[in-house]
Design a protein around this nucleic acid. Structure first.
Lengths: 256, 256
DNA sequence: GTGGATAGGTTTGTATCCAAGACTCGACGG
DNA sequence: CCGTCGAGTCTTGGATACAAACCTATCCAC
């Protein structure tokens, strides 16, 4: 994380001068670097040429191209033949769709995982929550984000590898919206963190229904926060349906 | 489809002799070719070197590598550094997880789409069902598979582009299991097709609940069919939870 | 002044080459 | 007989070079 930031800063500093250090960069590393750059907004939405991006990231074009193909499959970039690379733009309908997918997948996933969370799983969730508390007190956004990601992954991990990977991917997209449009006030942050704790409490009590309900409300509030940043007057009809499906009763909280 | 089959056949015929025809193959084309090869079983699970695969597909190694990265992100292959490419193996737990994801996503998606299916959407579904009937009468598996894919995509298309793409991806995986382990008897085929028709009927009537219920049962039966081919004594606990979440009451049909 | 053709630069797509890492299998010592 | 080491082979990773496609700006005909 810190290394990435440095890399980006360094790249920024030598925008056109770039003395290329050619260490054996793995494709995975380039993929991660670019993904984080997009998610955190350091690589802005819009068109960019591959060579320019390669210079900025200080990597070769060959691994970059393979990383681009992966990101294309994840939906973060669009690569049309003989056209420049396009970092996909953000929009309210897309944000809604993203929330729908997360609620659908994780709603089911949590119902699967809560009954099989042993004391080990609960301890892990508690530990991650404590770490998030720590970073929140220090107001360390980067550290919090990292643990936040692990927290949500931990909630669904027992449901299967495939599901976990997909949820992580959707988390990235959501994170991108949160970084770009979400309110970063301390009050909102504290609110989200208390929601996390309530989810853990429900899971600890073995109450799947309650855990799902709180998870859904957590996502709805997070999405609503993004919507106001994106334009305000957006009516998330699909989100309401998703909530009603996965956690009956939760859709009422969308009225507020 | 036919072209792909020919390509594979041709490649098979000249297993080691391959006179490479180097037309301007697009990465997307290579990706599609390999994806279909894996899904239909023409490229078997296991390890294979990139050069061998490139020869078999009669494409260059550069576009193949990019296609591999895409398939890696889709979960069809595993590519570890400096290791040979691995076409992922099939397993019962994975099949279950796949069904869970499909039920979760499409269960929500259908609830979203049914209310907004205009006469146009219903007509499209009817048309696709009629086409599937046609191919079923002719016992044309390939033709049926193509329309079958379009049918399921059509059911969720109105829920959003992202969701549709993801469902299509999951459809591919499921198709792979169906081709490898599903019973291909005419009776089973007719049964699935009648389930398709019932889903369309429910959608036409505007009954979201019923449509979801029938869709879920459709998937559960399809998954059960795969399970017997895979080994028999597999207990799909996660599947039951997914069904109960998305379509309360449907989980009872798992008992049979 | 406007529309279209064209030349130039820009960008992507692919093949080819070389280096680095991993695997194989045989030789050797215990 | 078994384990260990090492040379050779295989395979992938990355850079570079070049061709094809695209975009842009200019010029010319009307």
């Amino acid at each position: 994380m810190t290394a990435d930031a440095q890399k980006f800063d360094r790249a920024h500093a030598v925008t056109s001068g770039g003395g290329g250090v050619r260490d054996g960069q793995n494709v995975t590393a380039v993929h991660d670097l670019l993904r984080r750059g997009i998610v955190t907004g350091q690589v802005p939405a819009g068109e960019i040429s591959q060579v320019a991006l390669a210079r900025q990231l200080e990597v070769g074009r060959t691994p970059l191209r393979e990383a681009i193909r992966m990101l294309q499959r994840e939906g973060l970039v669009i690569s049309e033949p003989n056209r420049r690379l396009r970092i996909v733009e953000l929009s309210a309908p897309d944000a809604e769709e993203l929330s729908v997918m997360r609620i659908a997948l994780e709603g089911v996933a949590i119902r699967i995982t809560v009954p099989v969370l042993g004391s080990g799983g609960i301890a892990e969730l508690e530990g991650l929550t404590a770490q998030m508390d720590h970073y929140l007190r220090r107001q360390d956004h980067a550290g919090y984000a990292l643990v936040h990601c692990a927290f949500h992954a931990c909630l669904v991990a027992a449901a299967g590898e495939r599901l976990t990977k997909m949820c992580a991917q959707l988390f990235d997209h959501a994170e991108r919206y949160r970084v770009s449009f979400g309110t970063a006030s301390l009050a909102v942050w504290n609110q989200r963190q208390s929601e996390h704790r309530e989810i853990v409490d429900a899971a600890t009590a073995g109450d799947s229904e309650l855990a799902v309900l709180r998870m859904v409300e957590h996502y709805v509030r997070s999405a609503a926060n993004v919507f106001v940043g994106l334009g305000g007057d957006y009516r998330p009809d699909r989100l309401r349906i998703a909530c009603a499906t996965v956690a009956p009763g939760s859709e009422t909280s969308l009225a507020g």
